[in-house]
């Protein structure tokens, strides 16, 4: 079950809904806008959208939100790690990199954000940086030619920076 950690300002969601005229067919665009607002889709926001839009229900909106990989139902971490699993990265060992990150961050199956909210993990298809494979992106910065040891060092550095 998803838990919200933030207060939802429903008037902001109303503005988004109004801008799309409450059109059922614009649901995905609406969810994208709401995700931009909170960096993820809080359950309350999904419920609200489902109740507000005619012909939709919270369960149906939840279905759409969980169908597409682009939507996250968990809050993102302060550091968003994107691991490329496109063809080039995959053949050059992205699986090992991914496994190392999961182990390092103690992310069990189905969890993509650390308990302290510091890191979140996302698996993406091709970043278009195949020459740098396997690549990861941390908050917009590309890190090329990753290995399990290298990602471990990157994470350690960020953690010690946070502990200041």
């Amino acid at each position: 079950m998803i838990k919200s950690t933030i207060d939802i300002d429903f008037s902001k969601i109303d503005d988004i809904l109004k801008s799309y005229n409450y059109e059922k067919s614009s649901l995905i665009a609406i969810l994208q806008k709401v995700q931009e607002l909170y960096k993820y889709l809080p359950e309350e926001a999904i419920t609200y959208i489902g109740e507000r839009m005619e012909g939709l229900s919270p369960a149906t909106v939840y279905g759409v939100a969980t169908f597409y990989a682009q939507f996250s139902l968990e809050p993102k971490g302060k550091y968003e790690i994107k691991v490329c699993d496109g063809t080039a990265c995959h053949v050059r060992g992205s699986s090992g990199v991914l496994a190392a990150i999961k182990e390092k961050l103690n992310l069990e199956k189905g969890k993509f954000t650390t308990a302290d909210g510091l890191f979140s993990l996302e698996i993406v298809s091709c970043l278009g940086a195949c020459g740098l494979a396997p690549a990861i992106v941390v908050n917009g910065t590309v890190h090329p030619q990753m290995t399990p040891d290298a990602v471990s060092t990157i994470i350690d550095t960020l953690v010690s920076k946070e502990r200041g």
């Binding site: 079950m1 359950e43 489902g50 229900s57 919270p58 369960a59 909106v61 939840y62 279905g63 169908f67």
Partner: peptide
Amino acid sequence: CEEYQGLEVLGFANRGSQTLAQPIAGK
């Protein structure tokens, strides 16, 4: 639930082999 009652309490969540027919967020 949708066609008779218009409630849509149940919906499909997730995709592929993980798909479930359930209330929102597994409530």
